[in-house]
């Protein structure tokens, strides 16, 4: 049955991809395009651009698109549920056991080691993202301005996201006119 197959394929993808949504994309492509042939390669690439420009979690957006493309709204819901359920179950189990382990010295020591490592991983991802965008002064200015504003002022990131999108629009239109 196709609905079950959509669900179980995305459940499998959701369960075996550790380390965030971006890891899921190549696996989704392999299963959906190469193995099951639910979508052709070009549509998948177009869809990735879409999944990136719509807010929300990219892997989740991709799952919804694939499901809808194959079997309408019900198909979309099957893929969504399959994609999200593994992490929901795992994290709920962790949250429940953590609330009972609170105050355990061993766990606290382990996390005392992990916390600075997490900050280092985030600093590294900032560095690798900077290398990936066009090396222009306008980009550097936006990065530094957003960092300083968010760090020093009690402002919501939402406003900075909106202003940055508008700024991007102006930059794009200006480039077009030249």
């Amino acid at each position: 049955m196709i609905f079950w197959q959509l669900f179980i394929t995305f459940f499998h993808i959701g369960f075996f991809t550790i380390g965030g949504g971006y890891v899921m994309i190549p696996l989704i492509e392999k299963e959906v395009v190469d193995k099951h042939k639910w979508i052709d390669s070009q549509t998948f690439i177009d869809m990735l651009a879409l999944a990136q420009s719509v807010p929300g979690i990219m892997a989740v957006n991709t799952a919804i698109f694939v499901g809808y493309h194959r079997k309408g709204i019900l198909g979309a819901l099957c893929c969504l549920l399959g994609c999200v359920l593994p992490s929901f179950i795992v994290i709920l189990a962790i949250a429940i056991s953590f609330s009972q382990l609170k105050g355990n010295q061993h766990i606290e020591h382990i996390f005392q080691g992990i916390r600075p490592a997490v900050v280092a991983l985030m600093v590294y991802s900032v560095w690798s993202m900077i290398k990936k965008i066009p090396q222009k002064w306008v980009n550097y200015t936006i990065i530094v301005a957003v960092t300083l504003i968010l760090f020093f002022l009690p402002i919501s990131p939402i406003w900075l996201i909106l202003v940055a999108a508008f700024l991007g629009l102006l930059i794009g239109i200006r480039q077009e006119k030249r």
Binding site: S125, I143, V146, L150, V163, A164, F166, L169, I171, G172
Partner: peptide
């Protein structure tokens, strides 16, 4: 696509601030 010209560097700044 134009909006993302501004969003991409801004998102880097958001993460840098969290760091």
């Amino acid at each position: 696509e134009y909006c993302f010209l501004g969003l991409r560097p801004a998102i880097i700044g958001l993460i840098a601030a969290v760091c």
